[in-house]
Design a protein around this nucleic acid. Structure first.
Lengths: 206, 206
DNA sequence: ATATTTTTTGACTATATGGTCAAGTATTGT
DNA sequence: ACAATACTTGACCATATAGTCAAAAAATAT
């Protein structure tokens, strides 16, 4: 009986293999998108046979769903950490730095997410309209209170967040373009960090 | 003899049908990506049969390539228009406004491009490393000269361009996310315009 | 050691999809 | 009107791919 239909505690093999499959699937999905990826590709990358993959996951979509669910939490985490009690500019620049760090360290996750949203979020629209929307609106209120207190320039909190998401994830999602334009040699993230920090400090100063 | 193999001047029907096919293909490719799109989908959207599509284009990839080639020119055009002789801040804010307008009016083109880059630019890497790289480097020099002349704040021209591309195209590419977070009703582009204008004016002021 | 359970896979099916082709239909030029 | 050319398509093929299954192999429990 496959793991996916059991409620028992998973065995060591189950833990290891599901991990290996998800790891391989992240590679493949982030590079080719959902439709462009095949179970065979994932199997090859994981060093398993196709039926073996399907022993651990009901189908291709189940693998994808699992990845997206994990991903969303990682994606939302830095936003959670914005603290109303902290210094406004430091909090937001810290958030920018955190998002950029994530784009650097987890580019596959960023691309997987971008692929999903780009195609109209067919698998995670509910979460986008739920969790993400709620959390963003919560933190937008925090930004608004900072503005009202005169601690930040008067800018639209939502568009502020959009611009942060766009600029930071750009370095992961459009990686090939960024590197092509810069030419090889330098690490885009190295120079992007100071640039974004300066940019947001300038625009946020009241 | 199909159009794709002829050098003669195209007939009226050829012009009309190829247009209809490209129009339908843009719809489909921008929504589902290259691998996620089928010739049948394009045929259905264009109101033609599959063999008829393949009478005008050699294969699926040829349709995609044609779209990308047209697209790249549209994409590069606003960058071309940046004029060294103009007022630096107005030139750059004009560029931002132009890019945002394009994201609004041609979201399908933006998504097609995003899909392509996201998957590693398999079909237009040469153009990215050629035309785009050259033009960007040319305009980066212009920005540098403006900075040297004390007319702009001292920022990295490349990252400036990246941030402009990211923030403007975000509204087309991540459209579903933007609308989900804002909730329905307001037009994201309406409020994004003033936000971005203010943002770039603030950060560019010397 | 043996029984039980879990894991693995070769061989398979069904379907989707890119692409072909020969024969038919419409359009155009004279 | 008629021939030449351009256009269209139903039927088809080859391949790729998601997913199944029964039987073998490996791991685990007793």
């Amino acid at each position: 009986m496959p793991r996916s239909q059991t409620t028992k505690k998973p065995t060591r093999i189950q833990r290891e293999k599901t991990r290996a499959i998800l790891e391989a699937a992240l590679d493949v999905f982030s590079d080719f998108g959902f439709r462009g990826s095949t179970i065979d590709m994932i199997a090859a990358r994981a060093g398993l046979s196709k039926p073996n993959i399907l022993y651990y996951f009901d189908n291709k979509e189940a693998i994808h769903k699992t990845l997206l669910a994990e991903l969303l939490q990682t994606w939302l985490d830095p936003l959670h950490q914005i603290d109303e009690a902290g210094d406004p500019i430091e909090e937001i620049c810290g958030y920018v730095a955190q998002k950029l760090k994530m784009a650097r360290e987890f580019p596959r996750e960023s691309k997987l997410f971008a692929n999903e949203i780009l195609q109209g979020a067919p698998h995670i629209l509910p979460e986008i309209q739920g969790e993400l929307k709620e959390l963003t609106s919560l933190k937008a209120k925090v930004v608004k209170s900072w503005i009202k207190a005169g601690k930040l320039a008067d800018i639209d909190p939502y568009h502020l967040f959009f611009s942060i998401w766009a600029t930071t994830q750009h370095y992961a999602d459009f990686d090939i373009q960024v590197r092509s334009v810069l030419g090889d040699g330098s690490d885009p993230f190295e120079t992007a960090g100071p640039f974004l920090d300066k940019m947001y400090r300038t625009m946020l100063r009241p």
